[in-house]
Structures are given as C-alpha cells and as structure tokens.
Amino acid sequence: MTTLTSSSTSVSEQQHEAHADHRMFGLATFLVADGMTFAGFFAAYLTFRAVNPLPSGSSYELELVLPTINTLLLLVSSFTFHRAGSALKRDNRPLARRWLLVTAALGFAFLAGQMVEYFSLPFGLTDNLFASTFYAITGFHGLHVTLGGLMILIVWWQCRSGGRVSSQNLFPLEAAELYWHFVDGIWVVLYGILYLL
C-alpha cells in the first residue's frame, strides 16, 4: 500500500463527512434513539403511577407556576434559535450571533428556574418513588439542556467573522438547532406527563 492511496482515503473521507445531508440524517437518527430513552422513562413513570400507591405520609406535590414559566422560556427559545438560523442564511452573522445569545440565555434561565424549583420542592431524591422518578427525568432533561446550551455557545463562537460557521457552512448551527428543538419537544411532553397529568 502506498502513501498516495492512503492519503487519498482521508481526502475522500472528508468528502463523505462534508456531506451535510448525511450528518443531519445521522443526527436525526440519534435523536430518535435519545427520544426512546425518554420514552422508557415516561413509560416507567406512568406504570409506577398506575400500580404503585404513594407510601402513606409522604408528599409528592408539584408547583405549577415556575415550570409553566420555564416551558414558555423554552418555547420562545426555539423561536429565537430559528431566527438565528434565518439570519445566518441571509449572511447576517452579527444578527445571528445576537439571536444565539438570546437563545442560550433563555436556556440557562430555564436551568436556573429548574434549580430554584429543585431547592424549593418539599421532597428529596430518595424520599419516595415519585420523587426519585421526577428528579431522574427532569435531571436527565436538564442535562440535555445544559449540553444544548454549551453547543449554542460553541456555535456562537464559531459564527464570529472568520469563524467556521457561515451561510456556506450551516451544519453546526442547524445541528444544534435540531437538537434544541428536540430538547424543547421532549420538555413539552415531560411537562404534560409529570406536571399536568
């Protein structure tokens, strides 16, 4: 095997990987998988609810105000992310960056709200089955929001003039956006199941 052929391998690999379609497709498939993790958690929670009575004397009461505000924050952030995307497509990088910052800020505000909620709740992780499930599911979702927030900041950095992300290379932004919408969508379901039901 000559050096020449193997160097041509790496070039064509880059060509494969540069194919944005496939990466978005791969990401979407991954999100289906990720969604199944949540589906498993939700199914567990619903079964617990149907079968296991709350032990007497323990409390499992959720406040609705803060989570509702949080839901709104996330919904708005999906919208602002979309604005960032269209700004970038129009090659308006500064505007895109501003919208990205707003989105990240909304995301972190959500996380802060979540923290406040955690500390104000009358039960802890191991108090009872529902408390544990509540923390596990919201915590797992919070992890996703944190990750998404960091991704947004990275994209924000890459959007600076001379950065990697531009209207020519939309993939990082679009990937982060798809992920973010996914995380929002999961939250809406979560809100419905954990808080409203």
Binding site: T29, D34, G35, M36, G40
Partner: peptide, 14 residues
C-alpha cells in the same frame, strides 16, 4: 438497535 437499546441504557442508569 436504535429504538430499543436506549431504553436499556435508561433502565440501567436507573
């Protein structure tokens, strides 16, 4: 694989 393995992962985390 994509539909079922994540459920196992979540379960084992719990």
């Amino acid at each position: 694989v994509v539909l079922s393995t994540p459920v196992l992962a979540g379960t084992l985390v719990l």
